[in-house]
Nucleic acid binder design. Structure first.
Lengths: 139, 139
DNA sequence: GTTCTTGCAAAATATTTGCAAGACG
DNA sequence: CGTCTTGCAAATATTTTGCAAGAAC
């Protein structure tokens, strides 16, 4: 059962797998694109946004999810890929300015740059904005 | 005088160089880091934020400035470098999670990636988060 | 029973708009 | 005059917190 995997994932970080937390992790796991707090709230009409918010922040602390801003006006959350280490998952995200959807291009390797001396990197978001293929073909 | 250059810059795009607009362009031109609406408002205590906001949006439309989100919770604005064309200025930005400052690494070339077929790119923001050299040395 | 978690409401922060008064051409 | 711009206030949108009730250990 899927819940077992999710429970393990949380337990491995010492997080108690409460009902709401499992629901939040699950919608993130099943989503095919990054989700905002409002998105998740809409998908789980049982839980208030404050509880979801706190679950997400807890996951952020434990590097189970990461967040980024895509220009939509609201933070987007995504499950982290692998084991936790630094830097966090490095993704290429694309925000379509027409349909306002955000895509995560996992297949595209994020190019790494050299930072000036003394700067330490935690995470990278390669954020591209433009028009997605669907909107492009619609004209 | 500096104003002449700024007036030309606006006039070249058919934008009337009003007092507030000139002030806004000037603080952006003189700033050594990206500014938020609140930053600009604080620097120009004569103009209300709504007017500054509208000036910025006008500049955005005309590609005199570009904006991006750095994770601070508020949009940051920067003057565009050159003539307008696509894609917009491609910068590497660094957000320090300790001092909350945003750096613009103009010297670092943003690596270009190939998007999936059909996707058209307008702008890119290579957003790095971590700890800046100053905070790093302070421990 | 002590700590952790939830739900509701409301505070805090940012962005955006309505509208009447004023400036400009 | 007619259009563009400004200033104030207020509406929206989003994130975040306070607190008391409830659940877990």
């Amino acid at each position: 059962m899927m819940n077992d995997l999710l429970i393990e994932k949380l337990a491995a970080r010492g997080i108690r797998p409460t009902a709401v937390r499992l629901l939040v992790v699950r919608v993130l796991a099943e989503a095919d694109s990054p989700l905002s707090l409002a998105d998740i709230e809409a998908m789980l009409d049982t839980a208030p946004k404050s509880t979801i918010f706190r679950a997400l922040n807890l996951f952020l602390e434990h590097h189970i999810v990461h967040s980024f801003e895509d220009g939509s006006g609201s933070l987007k959350y995504e499950l982290c890929d692998g084991e936790h280490g630094n830097p966090d998952d490095m993704h290429t995200h694309f925000f379509c300015e027409k349909c306002q959807r955000t895509f995560c291009f996992k297949a595209i390797q994020v190019p790494v740059i050299d930072l000036p001396k003394g700067f330490r990197m935690h995470s990278v978001n390669y954020m591209v904005k433009g028009v997605c293929s669907e909107c492009e073909s619609k004209g």
